[in-house]
Amino acid sequence: MIRIEGLTKSFGKFKALDNINLQMQEGQAISLLGPNGSGKTTLIKSILGLVIPEKGKITINNHVVREDWAYRSKIGYMPQIGRYPDNMTIEQVIKMIKEIRKDHTQYDEELIYGFGLDKMKTKTMRSLSGGTRQKVSACLAFLFSPDIYILDEPTAGLDPLSSELLKEKMVKERAAGKLILITSHVLSDLEGIASHIIYLQDGNLMFYKTVEELQASTGESKLNKVIAQVMRTELPAMKHN
């Protein structure tokens, strides 16, 4: 589905991504991990075409990202920070996106009702809390049942109930054969969702493995313990090579 070849991007002298090669398939739920500034958001934005790569090529379902913008109809994106025009209401934001996507007439509005946004649709975006704005972003990402989900810190700022609801939705979509790409620092939130882990550090791809593989090599079962173990033992070893 997504194929990344030799992706390199620097901002000034700082190399945000250095020769990344990746292939992602449907039915995978990939967790993108790495310390702050490791290039996670740059990678996501490159896939979305928001950041223009220096070198390398990204193809999504055989569409080259730089040449053809229509591929984005297949992607549902939930940004890390959702900021919307102050005076628009929730209803207007959702309606606007629907009007932009005239190719769709069927909408997945499960989350809108699940989060109870339908009951406060006349509230303006300015008056909403960060968490509620996050909910609006989530609803927009899932609205058109895309094949690929790109979720940047989806559960940060959500209350436990809403966070559970969003996770259930992700599990459901993954079972339906969608590709989900998530960045999150809350590893416990990824438990039971992530099937693969991509670890980035200083713009380099450290590893790309299935959760089972990592569990086997570390002997741990909980995701946060697995990752902690990997960071302690495997990553330093990789650096020396």
């Binding site: 979305l48 075409g49 928001l50 913008w69 229509a70 591929y71 984005r72 109809s73 992607i75 994106y77 940004p79 920070i81 959702g82 900021r83 919307y84 025009p85 996106i97 932009i100 996507r101 190719d103 972003s137 927009l140």
Partner: peptide, 17 residues
Amino acid sequence: FNSIEFTELLLSQPIKR
């Protein structure tokens, strides 16, 4: 400048820049 995030959201839709 304040609309950057909104612009990003629009650009993640299939529309030309």
